[in-house]
Design a protein around this nucleic acid. Structure first.
Lengths: 135, 135
DNA sequence: TTTTAGTTGTTGCAAAATGCAAGTACAAAT
DNA sequence: ATTTGTACTTGCATTTTGCAACAACTAAAA
């Protein structure tokens, strides 16, 4: 954690999350079941390797993600959400809702449709699911 | 609007909002009644003048803000939210809630307290207020 | 009229972050 | 022993950001 720009909670959040990549990694873990460096690397947005390492380090340092050796493959690491990371769910959902609303090229899929109908229910259900995976 | 990284709605949102400053400007307009270049410049986070101009141009280009000559002072511009900009309210509220929850130095003030108690009500009330100001 | 203050920028330059390509290290599989 | 998979590191060019100074315009004051 560097020095904060101010004590405004929005500013504090943006100090950590305010870039184009961090929340995409969170999305991958939260909604797409991705857990490893190579899975993140293969996301369609094509993050560079050095940026990915840098962001994973920061997210781990902020205790948003935790890193463990994979049980199946000892030369592999898996990243999981902490409760602090899981609590980013509403932000992710709102970004998805706004993005879908104002981009024609972003057709709403299953989750998007459900968010449009009952956002609160989606957040409730997903946070329940995440609760059982949190480290 | 540059080229998008993907059609994921979260990614699309971050293409526009994914930096440390844009959402702080939105915060200033949305929650602090700020409307002008000089007011944004004087926020405690101390944005640089070239960054501010750059962000205002982008936000105007994305039709999140609109720029008009001030009625009182013809050498002054005022920036207002469009409906697209006002629809960022839930994102701002969630960033505030998460930031306040995980930062000791961010004591929740009036709005923060109300968000903690009943987030949905706050969003409903504030979006009603914003609706009447939208350009 | 000249000056001063207020407002919204622009410009130049250094520092930091990002993007890209290649290389490294280590474990497991063949 | 070699290859494959996984997780990085490094070097370098490009882009963005941060900082400080300067500029253009308007309105009001002296």
């Amino acid at each position: 954690m560097d020095k904060k720009r101010s004590d405004c909670p929005i500013s504090c959040s943006l100090d950590i999350l305010g870039d184009k990549w961090s929340l995409l990694i969170i999305r991958d873990v939260m909604l797409r079941g991705k857990m490893s460096y190579s899975e993140f690397l293969n996301s369609e947005e094509r993050i560079a390797t050095n940026i990915l390492v840098s962001r994973l380090t920061i997210l781990e340092g902020e205790k948003i993600l935790v890193k463990d050796v994979s049980p199946e493959n000892k030369s592999k690491y898996i990243y999981s959400l902490t409760q602090k990371g899981a609590d980013l769910l509403p932000i992710i959902i709102e970004l998805m809702d706004w993005g879908a609303k104002y981009n024609k090229n972003c057709p709403r899929k299953e989750l998007g449709q459900r968010i449009k109908k009952d956002k609160a229910a989606v957040v409730r259900e997903l946070s329940e699911v995440l609760k059982h995976k949190v480290k």
